[in-house]
Write a protein that binds this DNA or RNA. Structure first.
Length: 821
RNA sequence: GUCCGGGUGGCGGAAUUGGCAGACGCGCUAGCUUGAGGUGCUAGUGCCCGCAAGGGCUUAGGGGUUCAAGUCCCCUUUCGGACACCA
């Protein structure tokens, strides 16, 4: 028998121009009455052409967008480019040309690839963050934050990469190394711009209840840990020969009686002040030099021995009057809490390690039933009963904390307090390819915002600028651009030369799509009401903390400004896994790189999309060595072949069709629908495959190709396939006699009556072991089923001479006969 | 070290949420088909014993709850991820 051949290359070329004309994914037509859905893929960075990872992400986002369209929603599924950033700048340095050129070239390449990949994007909303029309609003937002005191400058020790010659955010430091060049990161004191995200720590934490069950639990957990709220108390210790007391932060005020020494962060101003006149100043300075030389890698080493310097000063424990030594050490962090701690070595491992190293006293004040830390070297940190603690004796931890807090507060020696790991967001970068910070520095007026009517403040041309990193921004060399008159007093002044972290760009881009052509404001209230918040966000888990946290922060700020009526930007989040090869991430150096363009050429767009989606749950990694694109091709041609076998006319009444096949079709529609809704796309595809198999059989050996049910089944297959294999589905749709496009055909209504099975198989067990089965009506009663089961010959035989203890029946599924044996 | 996830055939993975474990696919085996190797079709495929009918075992390991456990509880083990001196 000769089979028609399915030619995916031909089909792809055929439909692209037709879809271009049809524009099935244009959103927001004024006469559109469908309810809205906003489906968003994390926008790409334009570094070269799309790779396998993009293909997976966009295939998944596309399934969701196309599904909602079939379900009758007005779907906005936009795309743009996150186009500022270091890779473009580094490429520009290498090629000695403007980063703009490289960037826009790559965007054109990616855009063409996305079209060929049949992404259901609304191309009318595209923008790039490096367009002045976009970064104008970055600057506008910066000034809004500045006006509200949420953007400010301060001196602080920042992560510094000596090789890249730039500041790094905490997230760009991986295990003490620069994520880009693997150079050991050092600290440098610099004056930098910050966004005051810490003001929003509580809301970022508390508003997460809205996301519970809608975002991956893992992401919520990571954000919680990153914000790191802890509750405890600030306790004041009187210091000998010092007027001001020192306040320490502790989460365990119940162990205050066990505080046998105090430690201040060696690199804090407090330590320096205490060292003055202590007689150990020289020793202290030597120690300070030593720890400054330590890189972050040294600091991260596990089992790092505790070091420190006794400052020859003493504090008085506020509850028992004990005179305790004050030490300076690097194991206490200057920027967390108050930069000083009370050390309770019996009940904190770090303090105990330090105490043992320095021969300091250890006093047990909580009886946990474990062995004495003095002898074991293991601090007892669990629950227990207070001992050696005056009025606290006999109390459990929470009662003791309550009691001591009350006591400290009444004596004015302490207050309940909270602390956060979260720190303010360092946003300034000393690089060229980013949004210029719209501030002018004037000798007499200080920080002066660039007037709004002068936005965008464009980047000066890269021509003539040395973009190589040297620790100061290349913008400083653009003298024409740099020197301006102060907008306030008119005196000679200079522009701020730093550019913004590109995370600023991505923290609000999702608000811009609905208003992408609005020249008067970053986004309009009307558009926000129509489209936001994002109903479904799709992207990699690599952005679990920063991008998502910053976006949530911006949303809350804009909400406070009255510009948004919601306070969480992304209602639902799906984190897709990575595409790996032979168990590890693809890379040129590892030699396991699979090129997307090669795969597309060999197997076609639909088969690659299908393989990605069918490989497993979307949040799991796909190992490309486990998937079979040729299997996908085979399945797609099987499905396509069905469309050529249908002989009934378009519009035939399905109600007359073969009932078993109709039931299979409606079951598949129902189950696939449910599976897509719960992100089990691989299962949805499995149901379509089953329907293809059943339909094939019906045509060949069942009701035959002319039966109405065959047409109904094949049309349903085309519509379901349109989510993942749009070319094949469109071709099938045409062969079935329809006009394009199948993407807008609409999900067929499931007939509930056809979901009821004619008969189901009930299982009969004896003591939980299957003994027999019987076909029964799905509506059979427990009593009937039990009677039928007990009258089965095999069961009668098995029950001879035994005593039935009880029978558990769950019609129509199971009968379990419990006997004593 | 702390906090999260996971462990189901040769492989990727299903299991309507406590009710027939292994859907769907890959791979493999046999046969047919196609003018001789990326075609199509049919049948088979968790493991063990058996020619067979049939029987036994099986969701990392162990224990528990239940008429019934991949699913719930406890312990052990192992892999992966995140954070990492945060008081």
């Amino acid at each position: 028998m000769i089979h028609e051949a399915y030619d995916f290359a031909y089909v792809q070329e055929k439909w692209l121009p037709i879809w271009d004309a049809l524009q099935p994914f244009k959103s927001g037509r004024t006469d559109d009455v469908r309810p809205k859905k906003y489906v968003l893929d994390m926008f790409p960075y334009p570094s070269g052409d799309l790779h396998m990872g993009h293909a997976e992400a966009y295939a998944l986002g596309d399934v969701i967008a196309r599904y909602w369209i079939q379900k009758g929603f007005n779907v906005m599924h936009p795309i743009g480019w996150d186009a500022f950033g270091l890779p473009a700048e580094n490429a520009a340095i290498k090629r000695n040309e403007d980063p703009k050129i490289w960037t826009y070239e790559n965007i054109a390449v990616q855009k063409a690839s996305m079209r060929r990949f049949a992404c259901s994007f609304d191309w009318d909303r595209v923008f790039n963050t490096c367009d002045p029309e976009y970064y104008k609003w970055n600057q506008w937002l910066f000034l809004q934050l500045h006006e509200r005191g949420l953007a400010y400058r301060k001196d602080s020790a920042v992560n510094w990469c000596p090789s890249c010659q730039t500041v790094l955010a905490n997230e760009q430091v991986v295990a003490g190394l620069c994520e880009r060049c693997d150079t050991a990161v050092t600290k440098k004191k610099l004056n930098q711009w910050y966004f005051k995200i810490t003001d929003y720590a509580d809301r970022l934490l508390d508003d997460m209840v809205q996301l519970e069950g809608k975002w991956p639990e893992k992401v919520l957990m990571m954000q919680r840990n990153w914000i790191g709220r802890s509750t405890g108390a600030n306790v004041s210790f009187h210091i000998e020969d010092r007027v001001e007391p020192i306040t320490v932060y502790t989460t365990r005020p119940d162990t205050l009686y066990g505080a046998t020494f105090m430690v201040v962060a060696a690199d804090s101003e407090l330590a320096a002040e205490l060292a003055v006149g202590s007689g150990v100043e020289a020793e202290f300075l030597t120690y300070l030099e030593k720890i400054k030389a330590d890189s972050d890698i040294d600091r991260l080493a596990t089992d790092r021995p505790k070091t420190g310097v006794f400052l020859n000063r003493f504090a008085i424990n506020p509850v028992n009057g004990a005179r305790v030594q004050i030490w300076a050490s690097d194991y206490v962090l200057a920027h967390y809490g108050t930069g000083a701690i009370m050390a309770v070595p019996a009940h904190d491992q770090r303090d105990l390690d330090f105490a043992r190293a320095m021969n300091l006293p250890v006093t047990v004040v909580v009886d946990t039933g474990e062995e004495d830390p003095n002898s074991t070297g293991v601090a007892t940190v669990g629950e227990g009963v207070s001992i050696n603690s005056g009025s606290l004796n006999g109390l459990n931890r929470s009662d003791a904390i309550t009691a001591i807090n009350l006591q400290l507060e009444s004596e004015g020696k302490g207050v309940p307090a909270r602390n956060y790991r979260l720190r303010d967001w360092l946003v300034s970068r000393q690089r060229y390819w980013g949004t210029p910070i719209p501030i002018i520095h004037c000798q007499s007026c200080g920080e002066v915002p660039v007037p709004l009517d002068q936005l965008p403040l464009r980047l000066p041309s890269a021509e003539g600028l040395d973009l190589k990193p040297k620790g100061v921004s290349p913008l400083g060399a653009a003298t024409q651009w740099l020197n301006v008159d102060c907008p306030r007093c008119g005196a000679a002044a200079k522009r701020d030369t730093d550019t913004m972290d590109t995370f600023v760009d991505s923290s609000w881009y999702y608000l811009r799509y609905p208003s992408s052509t609005n020249h008067n404001e970053p986004f309009s209230k009307q558009d926000m009401q129509t489209w936001l918040p994002v109903d479904q966000y799709v992207g990699g888990v690599t952005h679990a903390i920063l991008h998502l946290l910053y976006s949530r922060f911006f949303t809350k700020v804009l909400n406070d400004m009255g510009m948004l009526e919601f306070n969480e930007p992304f209602t639902r989040l799906l984190n897709q896994g990575m595409v790996v090869m032979d168990g590890s991430a693809m890379s040129k150096s590892r030699g396991n790189l699979v090129r997307l363009s090669d795969e597309l050429e060999h197997h076609g767009v639909d088969a690659i999309r299908l393989s990605m989606v069918f490989a497993g749950p979307p949040e799991d990694d796909v190992d490309w060595s486990d998937v079979s694109p040729s299997g996908s091709v085979k399945f797609l041609s099987r499905a396509w072949r069905l469309s050529g076998d249908v002989t009934s006319d378009i519009g035939i009444d399905f109600a007359d069709g073969d009932v078993p096949l109709r039931k299979a079709t409606h079951r598949a529609l129902h189950d696939a629908d449910f599976a897509v809704e719960s992100f089990r796309f691989n299962v949805a595809i499995a149901r379509v495959m089953e329907l293809v198999n059943v339909t094939r059989k019906a045509i060949d050996t069942g009701c035959g190709p002319a039966d109405a049910a065959v047409r109904e089944a094949v049309e349903a297959i085309a519509i379901m396939l349109s989510l993942v294999a749009p070319f094949t589905a469109e071709e099938m749709w045409e062969r079935l006699g329809h006009k394009p496009g199948v993407a807008l055909a609409g999900w067929p209504i499931v007939n509930e009556k056809l979901l009821v099975a004619d008969a189901v198989t009930a299982v009969v067990q004896i003591n939980g072991k299957i003994k027999d089965r019987l076909e029964v009506s799905p509506t059979i009663t427990d009593a009937e089923l039990e009677a039928n089961a007990l009258s089965l010959p095999s069961i009668i035989e098995a029950l001879v001479g035994v005593k039935i203890i009880k029978v558990v029946t769950r019609a129509p599924k199971i009968v379990n006969i419990v006997i004593n044996s």
